[in-house]
Amino acid sequence: MALAKKERKKIDPNGWLLTYGDMITLVLCFFVLLIGEPAQDSARMQLLSAAMGGLGPFTGGQTLDEGPLALMGSTVNALPSSQRKNQMGAAKAQAQHLQSQDQNNLIQQVVEDPERGLVITLAGDVLFAPDSVELDIERNRRMLQELAILLNSPELAGMTYRVEGHTDSVSPEFISREFASRFRSNWDVSTARAINVLQYLVDYGAPESRMQVTGFAGTRPIVFGDDPESRAYNRRVEIVVLTRGHL
């Protein structure tokens, strides 16, 4: 009995103040760090917010140091854009190889557009007669098959494509009466030509579910001029491997 009383006397009734003081000190340190960090350092702020999860009852030990794990997080976030850049590079190399093998000069150029993506330009006068939207398949079958294989290649898995039709500034009514009776404007002509190219690409194996089609008439010339050579250069169909911003 005397021993029990002696042990009770050893208990400090103010012992809780030590734990309370530790907690107040941690909270004070947090706000000092919070106010002292520049507002523009968003990565540091995110780390500070994440560390708050370790200040609950009986937990802790989380660090505010942006060490290798934080750097790894930045690397992981950059992986999708890095993978897409590699895919664009692979597509460009393969398209340029096809262009070098193109005896009919169907592929006018292969360029990377920072806004749209990789643009493969096909010569409209090689694909179509001036007064027609029907594709000259006998002349262009092999190259369209090769382009379809490219669009369906494992290197471009998951990519989205758009087939764009473009005409010159000459209205169908100035080409022929029959042509004007079928197509009211170059909007109809450019869209019909783009659809026909898309259909052949799909027939040859291009992934239809990842394809888009549109017509721009003569609103997006790449050569400004009303001479025959400029108009011929503007009559084209473009296959665009789209960037994420244009999906």
Rank of each mutant, 00 (worst) to 15 (best):
M1T: 10
A2Q: 11
A2L: 12
K5I: 08
K6V: 13
K6M: 14
R8Q: 15
K9C: 11
K9F: 13
I11C: 10
P13F: 11
G15L: 08
L17M: 13
L18K: 14
L18E: 12
C29Q: 13
F31V: 05
L33E: 04
Q40H: 07
S42Y: 07
M45K: 10
Q46R: 14
A51E: 10
A51V: 10
M52D: 05
L55V: 10
G56F: 07
T59H: 12
T59M: 08
Q62K: 15
T63L: 02
D65W: 15
E66T: 10
V76M: 12
L79V: 07
L79C: 06
S82P: 06
R84G: 07
N86I: 08
K92W: 05
Q94S: 13
Q96G: 09
Q99D: 06
Q99V: 01
S100D: 05
D102A: 06
Q103T: 09
P114L: 00
E115L: 07
V119R: 02
V119G: 04
A123V: 00
G124Q: 07
D125Y: 09
D125W: 08
F128Q: 02
A129W: 01
P130K: 01
D131L: 06
E134K: 15
L135M: 08
E138V: 13
R139S: 10
R141E: 11
R142V: 14
L144F: 05
L144I: 04
L144Q: 04
I149S: 15
P154T: 00
L156M: 07
G158H: 00
G158L: 01
M159E: 12
M159V: 11
V163H: 04
H166R: 04
S169P: 04
F174D: 03
I175R: 09
I175A: 05
S181T: 08
D188P: 04
A192W: 00
R193Q: 07
A194Q: 01
V197C: 01
Q199S: 11
L201F: 03
L201C: 02
D203I: 01
D203L: 05
G205M: 00
E208F: 09
E208G: 02
S209N: 11
V213L: 01
F224K: 15
D226R: 14
E229Q: 14
S230P: 10
R231A: 11
R235D: 15
E238M: 13
I239E: 01
V240K: 04
V240I: 08
V241L: 10
L242I: 02
T243H: 06
R244P: 08
L247K: 05
